[in-house]
Design a protein around this nucleic acid. Sequence first.
DNA 1: ATAGGGTTAG
Length: 809
Amino acid sequence: MRCAAEAWAVVRAVVRPPPNRLNPPPCSSRLLTTDAPPRATTASLIRPYRICTASQSRCPQTLVADAPAGDHPGRTPCSGTPQKQRRSLGNLLKNMSRSARNVAEVEIVHSSAVKLGFARQVLAGTHLMSLYTKVGCLDSAHKLFGEMPSRNTATWTVLITGFSGAGFYSVAFDLFAQMLHEGVFPNHVTLPSVFKCYASMEDLGGGKEVHGWLLRNVVRSDVVLDNSIVDFYAKCGDLVYAGRVFDSMADRDNVSWNVMLGAYLRVGDVPGSIEFFKRSPSLDVASWNMMINGQMQNGVHGMALESLYQMVELGSSFSPITFSVALALAGTLSLLELGMQIHCKLVRSETYVDGFVRNSLMDMYCKCGDMESASIVFSKVPCSGRKVRASAVRSDGSTAETVSWSCMVSGYVHNGRHVDAFKLFRRLFREGAAVDAFSVTNIISACSYAGFLAQGKQIHACAEKLGYASDVYLSSAIIDMYGKCGSLHDAEVVFRKAESWSVVFWTSMIGAYASHGQGREAIRIFEMMLDKNIRPNEISFVGLLSACSHAGLIGEGYKYFRLMKEEFGLAPTVQHLTCVVDLLGRAGLLHEARAFIYENGIAYLGVAWKALLSACRFHKAVDMAKFASEQLAPLEPCDSGSLVLLSNIYSTANQWVQGSRFRRMMQEKGIRKQPGMSWIHLGNEVHTFVAGDRSHPQMDRIYSYLYRLIPRLKEMGYQSATNMVFHDVEVEEREIFLSYHSEKLAIACGIIHTPCGTPVRVMKNLRVCDDCHVAIKYISLATGRDIILRDTHRFHHFRHGKCSCGDYW
DNA sequence: ATAGGGTTAG
C-alpha cells in the first residue's frame, strides 16, 4: 500500500502539464480529428482529405507576404547579414528536425525563412515540410508543397510519409501515383512508406505490383526497405513469401527479426514464435513488447505473464509501450497487485507519461474494479484545447482524450456503477468533450450494455450532428444499442434509413431480432442479405442460429447450420456449435445434444455443457442434468452460475437434499452467487435494486404496492413457484423471499412512477427465474402494462399475460 | 527523409 501512495505522489508531479511558453495552438492536427475515421474494410480505409482553407489555416498565408518576424527572444534567427542569417536558419532547421515539438515553433521558423526568401529552396522547403508533418500539421506541409517551384525525390517522400503515417492512405497513394506520373523516381527511402500503406490496407495485390516493379527496375535496396517488404507480406497474411524475402536478405537487423516475430504471432503460431524468439540474435524492448502483447492477443495469458517476468529478470528496461502492454495484461487478468506494481515502476522510471500510457493505467484500474483510482487517473488526462502531438493522434483519428472518456464510461458500466456512468455522461455533454467516431461507438456500446436508452438516443443525435452517421461500425453499434435497450422499432428505423452494404450492419440487425426472440424476422433479414449478394460471415450465422434457437425454430436452425458449412464454406466455431446444442436441447432432444457435443469435439468446453444444463432445467430432466454437471464440474469448478442452476434443477424436482448439497459445496469453496441486480430508468435517474433491498428512498411505497399486488395476482391464478428458492424452508417464507427479487422491485418502482399504460423497461444482470417470469406475466395482465425485461440472454416482452419468449429461455 | 512493438469495444 505504501507503494501505491508513493506512486500517487509522484504521479501528481509527473502528470502536471509542462509550462506552456508559446501561444495557443494553431490549426495543427484538428484536421485529423474532424475527418470521419476509417474502419476495417479496405474501402473505408481510404479517407477523404480536406485541405484547410486559408481562413482556417493559421500557417503563413503566402511565401512572399510580410510574415511576422520571430518575436520570441532566443528563438529569433534574424540577426546579422543575410548570409549569416541563412546559415543560422539552416542550422536551426536541422536542429529542430530532431526535436520539433510544436506547431508554433515551426511557424516561427517558417516565417523567418519566408522573410529571407529562403523557403522557396528545395532543401529548406523540404526541411520545413518535414517539420510540419512531424508536428502533425499535414495541411501546412501540403500547402507548402504546392507552393514550391521545384521538388525532388525527398520532397515527395516527406509528403507521402507524412500522409501514410497519419493514416491517410488514399492521399499517400495519390501522391505516389502523381510522383511517378511526373517522372520522379522513388527510391529506397520513399518505398517503405508506400509498402506501409499497402500493409495497413492489407492490399496484397497492390503491394505485389510495386514489389515487382521494384525488382524490374533494380531500385537500390537496403535493410529498411527489405524490412518494410517483409512486414507488408506478413500483414497481408502471406507468411510464406514473407519468410522467403526474410531468408534472402543480405543484412538483417533487430527490426527484421521483430517483423518476422510479429508475423508468427499474428497468425497465432505461438510455438513457432517462441522458436523464432529463441533464434533471434539480439532482443530489444520491441521484441519483448511484441512477444508479451502477441501472447496476450493469442489468449495465452499465463505465457504472457511469464514473458513479462522474464523480461524484468533479464534487466530489460521498459518503454512506454511496455507499460501499455503490461498494464493491459494486468487488467485482463484482473491482477490489481501487479497493476499497482507496474504503476510504481512507471512512476519511478523517468518515462514520459503520455496519453496512451495514462489510458492504459486507467483501463487497468477499471478492469480490476478499482474505480476510485481510475477516476483519479482520469482527472489527470489533458483536456481539450491542449495541443495534441502528432504521435498522440491515432490513424483512426482518436486521441488520448477521446479514448479516456469512453474508457471511463464503459469502466463504470462494466463495474455495475450505473449512477456514476450516468453522472459522467452528463459531464461529457456539459463540458462538450471531444469525441471521435470510435469513442462515440464505444459510448454507444456502454449504453447498450447498461440499457441507457435515453442517453443512447442523445448520443445517436450527437453522432448525426457530428456527421458520423455514415460510419458503418457506429451505425451498427446504434442498431445494437436500440436492440439491447429494448427499442426494436428504433433499430429498424436506423436500419432502413442507412441502407448499408456492410455485413456488420446487417448482422447487427439480425442480432437485434435474435435477442428479441423474433426468429422469423431474423431469417427474413438474412434472406434479404443473401438477395443483395452480401456474403454473411461467421458472426451473421451466430446471430441467425441463436435467433432460431430463441424462437424454437429447430428445423430452420439446422438448415442454416448446414448451409453455413456447405454453401459458404465457413467452419463452425465454438459459438455455432453451442447454438446447435441449445437448439437440440430446447427441442427436448437431450440425448442428441449430448451426442452432438462429443461428435464435434467440444466436450472440453464448459459452455457446451452449460447449454445442455439449461435445457435440462426447462425439461426438468434431472438425470441428464446430473450427467452434464459431472462433465462441467472439473472444467469450471468455480462457476457459480452453473452450480446455482444445478441446485435449482434439484429443487424444482423437489430433491431438496441434493439441492442443498450443492449449496453447501458452494459455501465450502467460498463461491458466492453473483447477487441479482435489476435497474430501471425513470426520467433523468437510474434506480438499482438487489434482492431484499431496502435502501431505496421510496422503499415503503414499493413494498406496500407489492403487498397489495401479489394477492391480486393470486386471485388471477398466480401460484408462487416456491421451488425456486434455495433453502428448504417453509412455503410462506419462501414466498416472501421470492416477492422481493430485484426485478419485481424494479417493476413495482416503474409502475408507481409512470402513468397508466406506459411500458416498463427493466434490465437484469442474471437470467430471470421461473417465479418472476410467471409473476411478471400476471402483472402485465393485472396492470395492462407492457413490461420489457432484459436478462443476460434475451428480451422478454410481457403483454396481456404472455411473454414473447414463449416460456422458452 | 525511410521500416518493427501499444490503449479502448465486441
